[in-house]
Computed example of a mutant assay.
Amino acid sequence: MLGKVITLFAVLGSLSMSTQAFAPHRGTNRLFLDTAETAEWDSLIPTGIFHGITTNPTLLERAGHDCTIEQVQKLSLKALNMVGCDEFMCQAWGPTVEDMFNVGMQLSEIDRERIVIKVPVTFEDQAITACGIGAEYLAPYLGRMNDNGKNGIEECERMQSIADGMGSNTRILVASIRDVKSMGDLICKGMDTFTFNPDIARELFKEQLTISAAEEFEAAAARNGGSK
């Protein structure tokens, strides 16, 4: 087997325990950092909020990486050696099923449990397909659905209902998130698995009222001996 396989979409495989020295308790949620920029990994993975990293050929190109098996393997090794990064998702490529399978096998050979191979699903209802084959993840693209006239929030919620209705453990991994509010809306509907870019990640920490309060607290501490 390919280890873990994600459709674009979805993933076969079992949840692995982290082999890292430190594994923060995040509850049942899984948040992924969606970028191939390794400098962003170094900056944001240490926050401890992320379960792993997601990439695809487009993100590799944007980051200046070659889309080759050797390069993706190199990136996967870096990612999985980072404390707190439990999974690395990368996408297989190729014009045929056989080509895509072979690429996926090579990409995942370093660590079949923690390297997740993404493959596109082309049948009409991806949710039923992914749940039917026992995929670990199904990754709807929220922003792209909205761009094409669909109600992305409702579509994601429906996919979650399909997974629940089929008695499947498939996680709905919401991708193409354009703003924090959309993610919050989905969390309020019971969803807990997301991948988002570094800009969205930083938005999670940007609240002016909190920043102002923290500055006030620091100033008070300094006035009362906190700097000593």
Results as ranks from 00 to 15, higher is better:
Met1Leu: 01
Gly3Val: 06
Lys4Met: 14
Leu8Glu: 04
Val11Ile: 09
Ser16Asn: 11
Thr19Ile: 03
Ala23Gln: 08
Ala23Glu: 10
Pro24Arg: 02
Arg26Met: 13
Arg26Leu: 15
Leu31Asn: 03
Ala36His: 11
Thr38Val: 11
Asp42Arg: 12
Leu44Ala: 10
Leu44Glu: 11
Gly48Met: 04
Ile49Gln: 10
Phe50Val: 05
Phe50Glu: 05
Gly52Ser: 11
Leu59Glu: 01
Leu59His: 03
Gly64Asp: 08
Asp66Gly: 03
Asp66Met: 07
Glu70Cys: 06
Glu70Asn: 05
Glu70Tyr: 06
Val72Asn: 02
Leu75Gln: 05
Met82Val: 03
Gly84Ala: 13
Cys85Gly: 04
Phe88Val: 06
Asp99His: 08
Met100Pro: 03
Phe101Pro: 00
Met105Ile: 12
Phe123Thr: 14
Glu124Ala: 14
Thr129Ser: 03
Thr129Arg: 01
Ile133Asp: 02
Gly134Lys: 10
Leu138Gln: 04
Leu142Val: 14
Met145Ile: 03
Met145Asn: 01
Asp147His: 12
Asn148Met: 13
Gly152Val: 01
Cys156Met: 12
Cys156Asn: 13
Glu157Lys: 14
Asn169Met: 00
Thr170His: 05
Leu173Thr: 01
Leu173Phe: 01
Val174Glu: 09
Ala175Tyr: 07
Ser176Arg: 10
Asp179Phe: 02
Ser182Ala: 11
Cys188Tyr: 08
Lys189Tyr: 05
Lys189Asn: 13
Pro198His: 01
Asp199His: 05
Asp199Val: 09
Ile200Asp: 04
Lys206Gln: 14
Lys206Pro: 02
Lys206Ala: 14
Lys206Tyr: 10
Gln208Asn: 05
Leu209Tyr: 09
Thr210Leu: 15
Thr210Pro: 08
Ile211Leu: 11
Ala219Gly: 02
Ala219Phe: 06
Arg223His: 03
Asn224Lys: 11
Gly226Thr: 15
